[in-house]
Design a binder for these strands. Structure first.
Lengths: 152, 152
DNA sequence: CCAATTTATTTCAAGTATAAAATTTCAGGC
DNA sequence: GCCTGAAATTTTATACTTGAAATAAATTGG
């Protein structure tokens, strides 16, 4: 095998290794946060994610914007918003000028509930990521952000 | 607010930012791989993950080892292995000496199928992670591996 | 104007995922 | 030998997730 081929092979292995590590890092963190969320607030991660997005956009978000931001399917968001509505944490408002669209907003109860959750959530993340220095946090964030670049 | 408090606040924000970025990186990659896997092999990611683990341990794995390695629940693995068995890619073998346990192994068809998939999968990962140099791959892998340290 | 296409959302079927309960078996102590 | 508790797996109920089909409304090109 040529020297070039060996380098390519090595790079390929390193990439695979990184992907598996990324997957593990994600699962470890999600599993911890899920358990904390369930035990402390009887809430799932998907619900929290939706609440978080809605809290950030207080004017509300279209269903399709919500699914785009969370990078999940449209049908998925429908179900989660249904449940949040049933719990009184969010509500759908019809958009005037477009009778197909729906704007989802937090209720007052939703805003209050999310505030409690977000505060605790932050402390959990602080614990889980305590191993990193400020510089390492910046490095990791910057490197990971490159994965999202356009692949079209 | 004191100077110390400001630094802590900043760190906290950086940690949250990293967590969100990690989540996005993971979703971007998974969504791409899922689609490729579905279009090319009509296979889901969870199935591929199980095949991958079984390929690595050709003698077979206990159900509980499998769920531990993949960091998913026991009940979850039961269902995926059921489907892989139905497709003729894996099979359960009783462990002698312990009638509670099951050893899951790839079938010949499973070994062959996985080999095809793994080859393609590697090229997809190569493309998705092409943005990183060898040094960056090592840095990322090393930093992410720190998340798995004991938190008990 | 109007047929054809596109867009926003929901519905549906199948698969994935968890936590908790249920089964079955094993292992030790008495 | 029997009992108690632990271990391996499955089952169950519920929720999440996807991709595709369905619905309904908006937009566009002729």
């Amino acid at each position: 095998m040529s020297t070039t081929a060996k380098v390519i092979e090595k790079l390929s292995k390193k990439r695979l290794r990184l992907w598996l590590q990324l997957l593990r890092a994600n699962r470890t963190t999600e599993n911890q946060l899920r358990e904390n969320m369930r035990l402390t607030f009887d809430c799932t991660l998907p619900r929290f994610d939706v609440l978080s997005a809605l809290d950030r956009y207080r004017d509300g978000l279209r269903m399709s914007d919500l699914s785009a931001k969370l990078m999940v399917s449209n049908g998925n968001v429908t179900g989660i918003v249904d449940r949040l509505e049933a719990e009184g944490l969010a509500r759908r408002i019809s958009v005037d000028g477009d009778r197909r669209a729906m704007r989802v907003k937090l209720t007052e109860a939703g805003i209050a509930r999310f505030a409690e959750m977000a505060a605790e959530h932050e402390t959990w993340v602080d614990t889980l990521f305590a191993t990193y220095s400020a510089a390492e946090l910046d490095t990791l964030t910057a490197l990971l952000s490159r994965l999202e670049e356009d692949k079209t």
